[in-house]
Design a protein around this nucleic acid. Structure first.
Length: 178
DNA sequence: CGCGCGATTGTA
DNA sequence: ACAATCGCGCGT
């Protein structure tokens, strides 16, 4: 069915803030699991001190400088993995952190819990999400939805950027009770 | 080459 | 408020 086609490299090639907003309501597929993306954050290497890539390309962040549509999975606080999707054009680092996912039975809040529940680890770093129907994002419901923009969570730099995007609670409640 | 600290979370 | 826990990357 149409809905199983991975979002294209062209989609991810858009500016990171736009992609972060556009990913809300889309469906993340990982193995046999699938859920609706409810919360994202945008990170941009060029002018965003909160981004891992702000200080330039390193072994860890090199994936963020690569082509759009690839996974960037990193370990945080020695115990949690976080999943990002590389965006924008190759050579200019940016990516979207996935922070919330609505599954048929649970709503996962927080990037660490999201990866822990799905089983995403460093083994899933640097995957091309535009070529694999078992690890990708698809169009989802296509319903228009409301979301809020807020400062990003857990950072001390660039807190003026309202680059965290969350689907409205009312809309979430509707989905949960539908 | 050593060491401080982080895009987090659960528990006190 | 704070511990758990470890690899990255800055500074020496």
């Amino acid at each position: 069915m149409q809905n199983t086609i991975p979002l294209s490299a062209e989609f991810y090639a858009q500016p990171v803030v736009e992609v972060a907003q556009a990913l809300l309501g889309k469906k993340l597929i990982f193995g046999e699991q699938a859920g609706i993306i409810t919360e994202t954050e945008a990170y941009r290497g060029a002018d965003d001190p909160a981004s891992h890539a702000f200080r330039g390309k390193t072994k860890r962040t090199s994936i963020m400088f690569g082509p759009p549509g690839f996974s960037y999975v990193y370990l945080i606080y020695g115990m949690y993995y976080c999943l990002n999707i590389v965006t924008g054009v190759e050579g200019q680092a940016s990516g979207v952190l996935l922070r919330g996912l609505l599954l048929p039975t649970v709503h996962l809040d927080g990037p660490g819990k999201l990866c822990k529940y799905l089983g995403i680890t460093k083994e899933h770093n640097a995957y091309n999400l535009t070529q694999d129907t078992k690890f990708c994002v698809t169009a989802g419901s296509q319903l228009s939805l409301r979301y809020q923009s807020t400062p990003r969570i857990g950072i001390k730099k660039a807190t003026d950027k309202l680059w965290r995007f969350v689907i409205d609670k009312e809309y979430l409640d509707f989905s949960l009770h539908a």
